[in-house]
Design a binder for these strands. Sequence first.
DNA 1: TAGATTGTTAATCGATTAACAATC
DNA 2: TAGATTGTTAATCGATTAACAATC
Lengths: 222, 222
Amino acid sequence: MNNSISHIPEPTLRRLPLYYHYLKTVLANGREVISCTHIGNDLNLDPPQIRKDLAYTGIRGLPKVGYQVESLLKSLENFFGWNRIDEAFLAGVGNMGKALLKYEGFQRYGFKIVAAFDTDAAIVGQSFCDVKVLHSDKLTNLCTRMKVRIGVISTPESAAQQIADQMVAGGIRGIWNFAPAVIKVPEGVIVQNENLASGLAVLSKKLQLLMQSGKLRQEVVK
Amino acid sequence: MNNSISHIPEPTLRRLPLYYHYLKTVLANGREVISCTHIGNDLNLDPPQIRKDLAYTGIRGLPKVGYQVESLLKSLENFFGWNRIDEAFLAGVGNMGKALLKYEGFQRYGFKIVAAFDTDAAIVGQSFCDVKVLHSDKLTNLCTRMKVRIGVISTPESAAQQIADQMVAGGIRGIWNFAPAVIKVPEGVIVQNENLASGLAVLSKKLQLLMQSGKLRQEVVK
DNA sequence: TAGATTGTTAATCGATTAACAATC
DNA sequence: TAGATTGTTAATCGATTAACAATC
């Protein structure tokens, strides 16, 4: 109800889909009501944080009882608008592009790739999961005609900016970028970068620190 | 030099690979020295933040001059240990698993998948980029023998925990998890979750808010 | 020298955590 | 009723941003 609160913390936005996925399995197991204590236990999160996150979707729980799983799921769906499917274009049908095309689980999150684009003649004309690969030349025009608002970039770095420009020219307002490139877009267009190297770096540095401290502790023990 | 500071902010860790990638292209363009002002301009980041991030790697710049690109790259490589390759196992050779196997750019980040595992008889025995797919039964044993410390999970959700257990049993200390599952591991094992649904949710919510505010503004103008 | 840039310290901002009253 | 849980307000923590002296 409280639509005036338009700022939602990004960490919260990132956690909400995790709750959703979890609650789906909870419901499948036949549980109708759940508490934050329980969710927190399964998801390794603090209950007050979960309560605050869920409150952003507008849902209210019952003291002593918890939340109704089904209405919690509906609340999340409404919050994100997952009941309506957003159509998207994908550019760059390489390894990552193919994986994204073939993954059908995104539909659950109101997201569907309806056309793919590439410049490689060997790939143009092929289909993946009923999505045809067209030549990138046609991106802007088709985008305008189909009123598509979301674009996925999984091209090599060298092509990313040009593809982004074509997307913006076609009216795309949100870009999900998997290319290791910084994309410049005009105001009013959103870029969400998905950089696997960042996650890998976090993991390997944490591991490095862990092993070091382990060695140090062993030496101290000796 | 200051190894006593063992805590590095995670946002910094996530940005450092972006600098590295950027500096590689800077060097390729023949530039030998660069300032944070310049980096910030190209990467859409504030110069003082970049300075602070880079300081964690131990590098020092020269006032008025900036940083030497080459020594900056070396400093980053040393900081992360990218000069030594970490060998990793991957479990779950589906769409995402194949994309990760085929992507060779990770070697630049000291990371190489040396064996892949699956339970599907149709996939076991195949090779991708010289990496052979073995049956998951062999994971734990081979892991112990090869002293592999990093595991990648790209299995379906239902298999993720079991694979994680096998990895931990084989001595793996760091898990890069692409499955939409919360994995329980003993203390001393690190899990880095890579959840595409989170990124997608952030993008679509931001887009939603953008379109709403746009419409509101239009109405106000009318 | 003057201006640009680094490096450091302080101030701000925002998210998480803690505390606690309200409630079924 | 008593205990568990929600929802809210306050305190803490950590990262970003601002300010500024030091320096080539």
